[in-house]
């Protein structure tokens, strides 16, 4: 092993502690040196983590850059395990964008390392004001990372990406600005649409009950209280009392449907449906929502717009609101209500 020379052997112990301390203190600071590349020849490569981030970057960069999303569609970003090829790809990328707020779990440290090496590495949520973020009380430093479920908030990330690309490739700055503006227009339309359709749900039964806790931003922004069977952490599990309370909520409020996310086994909400049924209130499985990952690549649901459109339309239709069957742009495949009951 060439890597360990006699020098480090001799002082291995001291180095060990030093390195722990350094790595520990290194975590907090993440202000990479701003790269000042003015001219970029040809297409440059951008690596993104999630599909949502890649979607922004593709929209803004247009054909100027080769955009790669590490996580294929339908992958849980919390638990994504990068392999060697991902590391190589990140090492070779010109720019890296990730979602941030600890969404990428164990990869966080890698971004810090790569950024420490002078590479432009950005969390797209970095400039969203702390006040706009949802953080559980007592845990202020640990905001909920599922920002994209609030379209308004997410469009701040578009501005952030555009600004970084403009700085990186100044010659085409104009184009990026225009692209970003166009995309933000689309997002604004989407935001209005979601607000409208969710607003049509009768207020008494306007409750979003899901399997797993990922829709807090959606809840805040579109005024629909959210309840989930289990918490955020994968290992988290509900108590019997929690389930009973949920059932009582559904029954007393006459909430017509509850939802599963694509990443969770539908069986987890079946118990709630059955519980309500036993009290004489028939709850539907409202369909599958995309929470942490988008739909299949190449489909409408495989884009950020489609994903949110799908979620909003599905929720609205299942909860007795009014929305076009095929969504905002008429691109959804029929009523998105695909019941997927039983285990």
């Amino acid at each position: 092993m060439q890597l360990v020379d006699s020098y480090s052997h001799k002082r291995a112990h001291g180095w060990c502690w030093l390195s722990i301390v350094l790595s520990v203190t290194g975590c907090g600071s993440s202000n990479p040196t701003e790269p000042s590349t003015a001219n970029v020849e040809g297409r440059y490569s951008i690596v993104c983590t999630t599909g949502m981030v890649a979607d922004i970057v593709t929209q803004v960069a247009g054909d100027r850059a080769e955009v790669t999303a590490l996580m294929a569609e339908g992958v849980d970003p919390h638990l994504y395990v990068p392999t060697r090829s991902d590391v190589v790809r990140m090492q070779e990328a010109d720019i890296i964008f990730y979602s941030g707020l600890r969404l990428e779990g164990a990869m966080q440290k890698t971004f810090e390392t790569l950024s420490g090496n002078g590479r432009p590495v950005y969390a797209v949520t970095a400039e969203i004001p702390q006040n706009d973020l949802l953080a559980p009380p007592n845990f202020e430093g640990h905001p909920d990372p599922h920002v994209w479920n609030d379209v308004k908030l997410w469009s701040q990330a578009v501005a952030f990406v555009a600004a970084r690309l403009e700085a990186y490739d100044t010659t085409n700055a104009e184009e990026y600005r225009a692209n970003a503006e166009a995309y933000r227009q689309q997002l604004n339309a989407l935001d209005t649409y979601v607000r409208e359709v969710i607003g049509t749900i009768p207020e008494a039964q306007r409750y979003l009950v899901t399997a797993h806790d990922a829709f807090e931003y959606f809840s805040r922004s579109y005024r629909i209280p959210v309840e989930s069977v289990q918490g955020i952490t994968t290992e988290s599990e509900a108590g019997v009392d929690d389930i009973n309370r949920l059932v009582d909520l559904l029954v007393t409020k006459k909430v017509p449907a509850i939802f599963v996310e694509s990443s969770v086994n539908a069986a987890n909400i079946q118990a709630v449906i059955n519980g309500a049924q036993s009290q004489g209130w028939a709850v539907n499985n409202g369909g599958t929502l995309f929470s942490d990952a988008m739909g299949a690549e190449g489909t409408y649901e495989g884009t950020y717009l489609g994903m949110i459109d799908h979620n909003a339309t599905t929720i609205t239709l299942s909860l007795g609101g009014v929305a076009p069957n095929n969504g905002m742009q008429g691109k959804l495949n029929g009523a998105a209500v695909t019941t997927n009951q039983g285990k």
């Binding site: 294929a72 086994n265 942490d292």
Partner: peptide, 9 residues
């Protein structure tokens, strides 16, 4: 990494 597969969770 399987394309098209909805492997989440």
């Amino acid at each position: 990494k399987v394309p098209g597969g909805n492997a989440a969770g």
